[in-house]
């Protein structure tokens, strides 16, 4: 009874705020439960992993209407980090990300298509090095629920492969390293 009342009250509140079907989540940057990683082959012999340390974003998600979900992420490209000072400097230069001219990379979803109970294809526009291309993230809802501190969280991971040349990245790393895999692994806190 108490629960039903709370449900009605909550429903009314959500209706007032106009977001009955799409709860908004902010990526947990403060608690650092979000990662934007990439991996690229080194000579075809091993994986090189790197990440972007600074980014921000939101997503909307409703289990009942997953197709209405949206994702928006903005990345500070100068925060690229592959754990090697000289390489990171090179990655920031105009051989790669050209961060002084293009300090931000963005991903904005355009459509979400559920492919299973917890899996989806998130289509969107990725802007990197000043070039915008459509991409599709293969995404998975990793889990959701109440956290121990009174909030509600949901976590996703999605990845896509990018061809460096498509983003006007000049450096040629060889035949095995034409593509980089971008992996977004984020936890959002419901607002």
């Amino acid at each position: 009874m108490k629960k039903a009342f709370a449900g009605i009250a909550l429903g009314g509140l959500l209706a007032l705020s106009g977001s009955l079907h799409a709860a908004e989540y902010v990526i947990d940057k403060e608690g650092q439960h979000a990662f934007i990683n990439f991996k690229i082959s080194h000579l075809g012999y091993s994986w090189l992993y790197g990440r972007f340390n600074d980014f921000d974003g939101t997503f909307t998600w409703d289990a009942d209407k997953p197709e209405d979900s949206q994702v928006n992420v903005t990345i500070d490209t100068a925060s690229v980090d592959s754990n090697h000072a000289e390489r990171d400097k090179h990655l920031r230069s105009d051989d790669f990300l050209n961060v002084s001219a293009h300090p931000e990379a963005t991903f904005k979803s355009t459509a979400v298509e559920m492919t299973g109970e917890n899996t989806a294809k998130i289509s969107g526009d990725l802007t990197l090095n000043g070039v915008t291309n459509p991409v599709v993230l293969d995404a998975r809802l990793l889990g959701q629920g109440e956290d121990p501190w009174g909030g509600y969280r949901a976590g996703f991971e999605g990845s896509t492969k990018l061809t460096l040349k498509d983003y006007d990245i000049q450096m040629d790393l060889g035949p095995a390293s034409q593509e980089v895999e971008l992996i977004l692994s984020v936890e959002g806190i419901r607002q």
Binding site: N83, H84, A85, E86, D88, K89
Partner: peptide, 8 residues
């Protein structure tokens, strides 16, 4: 300072 920026 370039090469030692990350402590190497």
């Amino acid at each position: 300072l370039i090469s030692t920026a990350r402590g190497d």
